[in-house]
Design a protein around this nucleic acid. Structure first.
Lengths: 210, 210, 210, 210
DNA sequence: TTGTAATCGAGACGGTACGTCCTGTCTTAAC
DNA sequence: GTTAAGACAGGACGTACCGTCTCGATTACAA
């Protein structure tokens, strides 16, 4: 997307950070205010009443500016989500697999149920049911990386010799994360820490018992 | 909604002397053709392009007739789903817990990934993320009953003394169904029989080992 | 049209005047309340917002009862008008042509500008511009008779020898009534008594001077 | 509403006449095709079956474009009428009052009974009975000017010394025009030239005889 | 120093679908 | 056999957004 104009070139932009668009690229200011407006409106009015026109008005931006850079409402939310949630769910490393997994599962549950970014994720996951292209973006830009984080504690444990290298890590991740997402997206039950802890223990008991 | 006004209740009407005017109620024909049109169009054009006007046209029904009986597009789909999927997912009973669970998990996976009713369910679950009222209807009219079916093999096993009566059945159900729904709704991976079998075995190994 | 069931047969109805519809014919009560509801609603909400459904509700009558007896909204108003305005505009007879005409012209002006029946007449005349059938009914059931009344003072004057029998009475009526209706329907100016008196005088000066 | 964006300002627009509507103003092309469609449909299907949707379709214009610029169906017709009938009824000047009045009265009668613009005028006058705002627009944008034209022959006669300066011109206009409009709008009789000639003569005989 | 090219805001446009209102027809049960 | 009640197919209403388009202003580099 090349949407990111910040970063190492910000010295040359220091004096012109507020440009309103010219031949040399898009307005970073407009981009930011669109993403923030989308984020805010999603929380305030919900996905259904979130409109491009509403985002444009809230962002103080022309509708065409949005259409120039984003193909659809979902793509705006996707960008907003990627920007906001980039850091979130990296698991800790205490050299204690059970502890790391428990902490990580709790963090994921909290993200899904209690954070703004989680609300955006739920909305995007919902829309992805009707929109294969969005589903693909979600997979490539979020879920793949997330799967990497989810696997990380197991891989570290293997590296330090604390876990059988033949363990089926993806299965283990599905067994821990599956019930969490299931409760959040389907049954809408709470996801207390006892629940995630129990899931982790069940997986580790099987893996450890080998 | 008391959507059914015709049918078996006409006996009680014969004695109801206190009618002022017509109580002939809604047209069952119109109701059916709306539900069928909604079903068909959802499969053909997808949720996003499914419109009330399209349903009305396909059903040969006036738009107002739809609005008279259904508050929203989602409520039509909900009715269609309830009608179609009423029978579907009752587990078999072979007096073999492992076999019954494996069969049931495979049937659920097939329902979610390969049936028309499953497509409606996925669409409804997606919309329920944005619509608490729909979420409530889904819970009360489908998921509650479904949870009963999912628990049934365990309860039968307890009844016949093959399982510890203290087993946490709801947890076990979450551990089997959670990863299935997770793959369907989130990661969009296939759900092969080896996967569901493994989930069942993992749960039973723990329960049996108690 | 046969819309009128009253009149000379009302003796035989005396004992059944309040029936709500049976084998003996239409409900006079329903007919009356429809006409009154139409009248009242026309004054209250205006022609544009006058609906059959509104009339039915106000009259406490089923919509079908209206459609059974009246072909259209305008026909209801026409009946209401005929019933209300039957008596209104019969000219007095003082054996003084000028005085009779002045009085009559004033009464017509007052009818058009200040009476409820006049409001109905204006509405009907307006709709008659778009509806030839209504225009015909207006002509046959009102304007013809009204023209007779308008001519009456002249005919009486001829009969008593006070006016040349060769006078063009229709022209004279047009010259007096035309400007009155013109002000009411087109320019919406007031129609004061000085104005109608002057019109009468102008006509009589010509006729008398012949 | 400032519904008129064309007209005297079109000089400044000369170079941008083909724009399709942007921040600098509305599309003149859309405006024209709406007015023409309304005009044509009124003549073809009549006022009652004239719909905004029909106009939009015929004009090849979106419904919202109509609602953006005209508050109602009547306002469209009013604009169409003002545009079409701007030139129409200016009286000739032959320095012969009787001849000018006769010619003018004939032209007015012809306009009302035999022209497309006259059909629009009759429809508007009819609707003005139910709509005070429309009545006001008709008065200000047409009838005032028309009254000026109707008075013109008399004023010219006074200017050239052929008529008593104290003559009541408005009364004379009412006496000539009133019966014409009366026949057109109320009695629906023909308005032959003998009739208008007689009206003119009656008025002039009185004025001239003073 | 000026011209050029890309972006910006603004907003009118042709459309689609919305949810509402009313029309005129039909059916039913009550009286 | 008329009535009140009200469901029905149909169709227009006026609104909200969609995604496209043109416009004049703004800006930064290149000529």
């Amino acid at each position: 997307m090349g949407a990111d104009a910040g970063g190492s070139t910000n010295r040359s932009r220091a004096t012109t950070a507020k440009h309103r668009g010219n031949r040399h690229g898009r307005s970073e200011e407009a981009r930011q205010s669109v993403l923030e407006a989308a984020d805010g409106l999603l929380v305030e009015v919900g996905y259904t009443r979130l409109t491009i026109e509403g985002i444009a008005e809230r962002a103080g931006v022309a509708k065409q500016t949005i259409y120039r850079w984003w193909p659809s409402k979902n793509d705006i939310l996707m960008d907003a989500f990627v920007q906001d949630a980039a850091e979130a769910l990296v698991p800790s490393d205490t050299a204690d697999l059970r502890r790391d997994l428990r902490t990580h599962a709790r963090k994921v549950a909290h993200f899904l149920t209690a954070s703004d970014a989680g609300a955006v994720f739920r909305a995007l996951t919902a829309q992805a049911q009707h929109d294969p292209a969005l589903a693909a973006r979600l997979r490539f830009e979020h879920l793949g990386k997330q799967r990497g984080y989810d696997r990380l504690p197991f891989e570290r444990a293997i590296a330090r010799g604390a876990l059988d290298p033949g363990a089926d890590i993806d299965l283990a991740v599905d067994q821990i994360m599956g019930p969490v997402y299931y409760r959040v997206l389907v049954t809408r039950q709470d996801v207390p820490e006892e629940f995630t802890d129990t899931l982790v223990d069940a997986v580790l008991d099987r893996l450890g018992g080998a």
